[in-house]
Write a protein that binds this DNA or RNA. Sequence first.
DNA 1: GCGACAG
DNA 2: ATCTTGTCGC
Length: 270
Amino acid sequence: MEPVHPEFVPDASLSRAEMETLQRDIAEQAVFADDLPFDPDTVCRHRESGQQQLDETGGGDGGNPGEAPIVLGVDQAFLDDERAVSALVAMRNGEVIERVHAVAPTEIPYIPGLLSFREGGAILAGFRELSVEPDIAFFDGSGRIHFREAGIATHIGVMLDLPSIGVAKSLLCGTPRSSTEGLAEGERVPIEADADVTAPDGTVIGHAVQSRQYDSPNRHINPLIVSPGHRVSAETAADLVLACSAGYKLPEPTRLADQYADEAKKTVGT
DNA sequence: GCGACAG
DNA sequence: ATCTTGTCGC
């Protein structure tokens, strides 16, 4: 698929100030409320068994009528300091229906807050290779949990006008409403905007989500940090990540994209 | 100047 | 993200 908003294509040649201005413009266009082309409850409830569900009706307006929604996992790996590989894995009803990958220059180093300008090129190249129409995409990193409410999931989601969610392993900014330690599997803690975020203080910009947890004493797993990218609410984003989890910390689309990115990295060679 | 910071 | 074997604890 191609960008619906070419003016938001991440341009690594912009100055830092211009990048930040672009992010504010993107955040203005972002929709942090549910506007999905499918019913969130129809996304396959994965579950440890790895067993799939039979699809019933599965669709709202717009998307893939009569079938369960297509959930896309997107993740990047690096061949070296100047080339990124983006891997995209599309799933429906818990099964992979397409996998594509693409390589593109990174152009700029990693700078907290500007991740989409480093990895965006590879991601866009990956989307050009994709033939199916995803209903929603999971990105590695933040969405609204970002200084200017425009993390990589929001940036790419708005540019493509594709519902999106950010799935990160650690917190970029914002403040958990309560302790995120000792959560049981399935539990979540709201992450609120603070002085570091453009949203009004106290705005719920995402959640710490315990997608997996050991049942015993010493030894625990840290929660995922989930935030809305575009056209999804913070609550539904967390619901969908849990629905797509299958016994691992990362939701299946993300876990498989992660795995595929490493595989592609070795295949592409140097 | 110091701190803090997705991947 | 990436460099990497064993190892501690489910």
